[in-house]
Simulated scan of single mutants.
Amino acid sequence: MFSRHSLVFLLLMVAVGLNLRPAMSSVAPLLTRLQETAGLSPAAAGMLTTLPVLFLGLTAPLAPLLAIRLGSERALSTALIILAAGLILRGLPLPGALFIGSALAGSAIGLGGTLLPALVKRELPDSADLVTGLYTMALCLGGALGAGLSVPLTNLLGGWQASLMSWSLLAVTALLLWHFSMPSRPQTAITQPKASGLLKLLGQPLTWYVMLFMGLQSSMAYVVFGWLPSLLVGRGYSEAAAGWTMAISIMFQLVSALTAPWLARLGRDQRPALLLVQCLTASGLWLLLMAPMAWKWPGAMLLGLGQGGSFSLALSLLVLRTANSRLAGQLSGLVQGGGYTLASMGPFLVGLQLQAGATISAITWMLITILALCSGFALFAGRNLRLDNRDGELIVHRY
């Protein structure tokens, strides 16, 4: 049973998690409209979808430094303030505001997404991997809300600028809840590792396997967040129908986000679960982008199940591959920093391919190839190994 303190933390974690995806998923259904009204080329649209992910990756390693200066809880409050500011800025009628605001929002998501796993490991160490499933569910729900409500909000509020800015209200709500109810404990900062400690962590192949798996699976997620509605419009969907198809897919992520950690706990080897979710993702993409349109709902379902499970398992690896919260925070910063920087290349690459006149079929097979490569790294990241810093030395052992 969870204590009252733990239940409050869980509710706050969900409130924060709801804010870590709408900044990206709310743009995708409007991308075709932005290209028409704001004069964005496919390459510029690709840059718009890439910037949040790129800055997410660049900022994630800074989270431990911010945490040791402010404390982990106040560092997360700072991330929410930056997120709200970025969401407001991207809708203002100023030159470059759309791009600068998107970069700020991505930076805030990088900080928040890195701080939360270590806080989970600290607050609920015995249930951290299962709680990660709940956190992932909140991320998926936030992403689905961003995708599904983006076009209706544009119609209701009279323009895409107001629609994009409206998501700042959700961030401000989470900020108020977190600030006034956040858990407080002595010495709550995530310890900032020394340079030599980071080098030791980077010297472990297991770190790289987890990072590359995180990066490649995240690349697929952000391609979907950034381009799936546009690709579906290219197949003949209306703008609203494409947005809702993406939203339904993200809603199915809720199911696998919760069940994947349970599946991972059936054994100490997560490779079967990791390979299963990659196969589901590839099947869903193929059905949505290449099969007859009558298969769109099975495709959306399989894509959602695969991506929700993949991301939930990737976050679970940060917990399962480390022996304590300090290492979890360090690994989280490195893996999310390097992984999301790699992931940012996915949406940009799709934009470049569209600019060059690539067909949807060619783009689909490129994405499936990336999933195959991701499965290769899953075979190494999913083994029952754990990083530990016994007696001041970083070692890898079975558990």
Rank of each mutant, 00 (worst) to 15 (best):
Q253H: 04
Y135F: 06
L175K: 08
I88D: 01
A282M: 07
A195M: 14
L327H: 00
G226A: 07
A75V: 07
A171E: 01
L342A: 00
G306F: 00
A291T: 10
A273N: 05
W286Q: 10
R69A: 07
L228Q: 03
Q278A: 13
M13R: 02
P29G: 04
W295T: 15
V131A: 06
L92E: 07
L371C: 09
P272T: 12
S150M: 04
M290Q: 15
W295M: 10
G309R: 00
L331E: 08
A118D: 06
G267R: 15
L228Y: 03
G267Y: 11
W365P: 09
I370K: 05
G329C: 11
F213D: 02
V396L: 06
L305H: 04
P193E: 00
R185Y: 12
Q355M: 13
N19E: 00
L289F: 12
I250H: 14
A240Q: 15
L385C: 10
P29I: 05
L34W: 10
G346W: 02
T259C: 12
L318N: 03
M290P: 14
S41N: 10
I100D: 01
M290T: 15
L20E: 07
L70F: 02
F9M: 13
E393V: 14
A67F: 01
L198I: 12
E73D: 08
L317A: 08
L54M: 08
S41A: 11
L315P: 04
A144V: 07
I250G: 11
L354W: 02
G226M: 06
M301Q: 13
F9P: 10
A381G: 00
L40P: 08
L371V: 10
G338A: 08
M47H: 15
L98N: 04
G338R: 05
P205T: 04
I370T: 04
A174Q: 07
P186T: 01
L276E: 09
F213R: 01
P186W: 00
M251C: 12
L83E: 04
L56D: 13
R122M: 12
G159D: 05
G357C: 02
V151C: 07
L31R: 13
D129G: 06
L89D: 04
G351Q: 01
A300W: 00
G17W: 05
A67P: 01
L139K: 03
L317F: 03
M220G: 14
S238H: 01
A300H: 12
R74Q: 01
G71T: 13
W365M: 12
S6R: 15
Q253D: 05
A147K: 09
G133N: 00
G333T: 11
Q35R: 15
D126T: 14
R321H: 10
E393Q: 15
S332V: 08
L11G: 06
Q278F: 14
G133S: 12
L289D: 11
A291C: 04
G267D: 13
A358G: 05
Q355P: 06
N384V: 09
L216D: 09
H179P: 04
G376Q: 08
G106R: 13
A105R: 03
S219H: 04
A28Q: 06
G86F: 03
V210K: 00
L169T: 12
A189T: 05
L349G: 09
L92S: 02
T359S: 13
T59N: 14
G351S: 07
